[in-house]
Design a protein around this nucleic acid. Structure first.
Length: 590
RNA sequence: GCGCUUGUAGCUCAGCAGGAUAGAGCGACCGCCUCCUAAGCGGUAGGUCAUCGGUUCGAUUCCGAUCAAGCGCACCA
């Protein structure tokens, strides 16, 4: 028999399924259904059309595949119900558990014993490698993510970019890309002019040393309050930034100090979140690379003067002009991003370059790509902005300037404290309480951020973010912990891919089909840069497993004990791997 | 005004190339721990899929218009 083990898991994918490996044809259950149908359809409809029409029924009670007879009604001049019934009467049912006509549909039920054996054997054999696939051919993918601003505390908004970027990196790695996580720190720009001006006016060294981030934020907010009545402050701030760009000693000294203090507090939060970066090259890093960008633009005669500033006209792209240099000669956001894009292409020769940045910056990235395209850099099409929705509070946009922030560190602290309380109430004898409280609290926050589509806006609600019941991270973690607990109670049985595991009951079938869908889920998540696909999937699998757990006694001795344990082991593996891809830890006990 | 994004149960959201009675979670009400972790399982109630047109045998899904919301629209990032 041909090895069917390897592609079996693709069958629930509705995306185009490859039927062939490099050399030989591999067993594919969707193909099996197609072949059976083609034999009785007598050329009324093409084979690939049949394959394409096959769908997954709404409910497992209706089978594993359904063929709708509607399209045949026209050609055969018969009612679809009649056609479905005739197909069932003639079709060869030997490879299936059952084939039945329900109204205009022909429903196929797979052979549960064969299918469960294939899937369990595969997962047990591959372990955490299950679901790995080669989409990226090891291509480099720099991911611009997190990128907090120096001298401002990290807010919930930075959490989004951080956890989405982190998860995309892990998902891309699983599909054989080589992600490079870049924290493009906001450590340059006129905001530093403002900060220095504010510090000079109202700040002191002692104050900043005592509580760096909060004091710096305070100065910054006060600056924006006062400059309404005193517009001359803006002039001063601009002057300070110009000094900074020109290397003025005092300005540089203050900048370095602010940056260092800020980075310290960021690292603490990254530690809690479990996120690491490959590069911290922020905006300042590109300070000495900007002249080249400007001269490249000049060489191509793309720069134009407009109202005293240097711009690139993008009218033919239906975009506003890109401002390269301000009237005072200082550079801007897009100038630095151009330098960064070029630097990344030269350094990493990337297959794709991603920017996990809020939805509100869509135009900026369109401009960036357009300018690069004008410069003749054809790789500009490999640049992808990965936008995400806004976090609001009371329906209003958060704004550091207006002092309306939700501090990430406080949210994480609250979540961990609530997890501690939960453990005290639910499982007071637990080992490693502190560690598990961290994992669960932080896991809840990260999962909450990733479970919905990136583009959805959400209004911040602490109770919602740190919920531990229902569709939450802790629910998935709990399901995983339950599975691990069973395996411990069974003395961690030796399950190998050489053994045959077979299950045929309804409750396990639901779990098995979910496990089988994992590789297709990874593929979709990678192609759409969408961690929520994995998060939703982990919830579905956890739910199916908990249902199974409630209805089936696993640890009883009979001839299927080992098969049930293989199922539990497979669930644990896939849940653990799903959570890992989201950047959430999976405690073995909780 | 122009552009981008979004509009599905009281709330938060799924619904993946259009197809069978539109699904979860939370909240409400009601059940289930002499048995593998009740952070769990099950049940009841709750929906003109924003509106109007078009394409189609068939539209929550595709197209267009309208309405509503959020975001953006050069010297911030």
């Amino acid at each position: 028999m041909v090895p069917r083990v390897y592609l079996v898991s693709y069958i629930f994918s509705n995306v185009g399924v490859f039927l062939y490996t490099k050399k030989e044809k591999v067993m594919d259950y969707k193909k099996l259904v197609t072949d059976a149908l083609v034999k009785v359809l007598d050329g009324q409809i093409q084979e690939d059309k049949v394959y394409q029409l096959l769908e997954k029924p709404k409910s497992l009670e209706l089978g594993d595949f359904a063929f709708p007879a509607f399209p045949l009604a026209k050609v055969m001049h018969k009612a679809p119900q009649t056609i479905a019934a005739e197909i069932v009467a003639q079709i060869d049912q030997t490879d299936f558990q059952k084939i039945a006509a329900v109204g205009p549909y022909v429903n196929f039920f797979l052979d549960k014993r064969n299918f469960s054996a294939d899937i369990l054997q595969q997962v047990i054999g591959e372990g955490t490698k299950y679901g790995n696939q080669n989409i990226g051919n090891a291509g480099n993918v720099p991911i611009d993510m997190s990128s907090p601003n120096i001298a401002k505390p990290m807010s919930m908004g930075h959490l989004r970019s951080t956890v989405i970027g982190n998860s995309i990196a892990k998902i891309l790695q699983k599909t054989n890309y080589n992600p490079i996580k870049i924290n493009h720190l906001g450590d340059w720009g006129t905001q530093f002019g403002k900060l220095i001006e504010a510090y000079k006016l109202w700040g002191s060294e002692e104050e900043v040393k005592a509580d760096p981030i909060n004091k710096l934020l305070e100065y910054y907010v006060r600056f924006h309050q006062e400059d309404v009545a005193h517009p001359e402050l803006d002039e001063e701030a601009r002057a300070w930034f110009k000094k900074l760009e020109d290397g003025d000693e005092e300005a540089v000294h203050l900048w370095k100090w602010f940056r260092e203090e800020s980075l310290k507090s960021f690292m603490k939060i990254y530690g809690i979140l479990g996120v690491e970066f490959d590069s911290y090259n922020g905006e300042a890093f590109y300070n000495d690379k900007m002249n080249e960008v400007v001269s490249l633009l000049e060489k191509r005669h793309l720069l134009k003067e407009s109202q005293g500033a240097q711009i690139v006209d993008l009218e033919k792209y239906d975009l506003n002009p890109a401002l390269i240099k301000k009237t005072d000669g200082a550079t801007l956001y897009i100038t630095r991003d151009l330098a960064a894009a070029i630097y990344r292409k030269r350094t990493y020769d990337f297959a794709q370059s991603l920017y996990v940045v809020g939805n509100e910056q869509t135009n900026h990235f369109k401009q960036l790509k357009a300018v690069l395209n004008e410069m003749g850099e054809s790789w500009s099409e490999d640049i992808h902005h990965i936008p995400f929705g806004l976090i609001t509070q009371g329906g209003k946009k958060l704004s550091t300037r207006a002092g309306r922030v939700i501090l990430l560190e406080e949210v994480l602290d609250d979540a961990i404290k609530l997890a501690e309380k939960q453990i005290a109430a639910k499982n007071p004898n637990l080992n490693n309480k502190e560690k598990v409280a961290d994992q669960v609290g932080v896991g809840a926050v990260i999962f909450h951020d990733l479970k919905n589509e990136r583009m959805n806006n959400f209004d911040f609600d602490l109770e919602e973010v740190v919920r531990f019941e229902g569709e939450t991270g802790p629910y998935v973690q709990y399901s995983h912990a339950r599975a691990m607990s069973i395996l411990r109670k069974a003395d961690n049985p030796e399950l190998t891919a050489e053994l045959t595991y077979q299950l045929e009951d309804e409750d396990s079938w639901e779990v098995i089909t979910k496990i089988a869908a994992f590789p297709a889920v990874i593929k979709r998540a990678a192609e759409e840069y969408e961690p929520s696909v994995v998060a939703k999937y982990s919830l579905h699998l956890a739910k199916a497993f908990n249902k199974y757990y409630a209805h089936t006694k696993i640890l009883v001795e009979d001839k299927q004990t080992l098969s049930r344990l293989a199922l539990v082991q497979s669930v644990a593996t896939v849940l653990n791997e799903s959570l890992r891809l989201l950047g959430v830890q999976a405690p073995e006990e909780m």
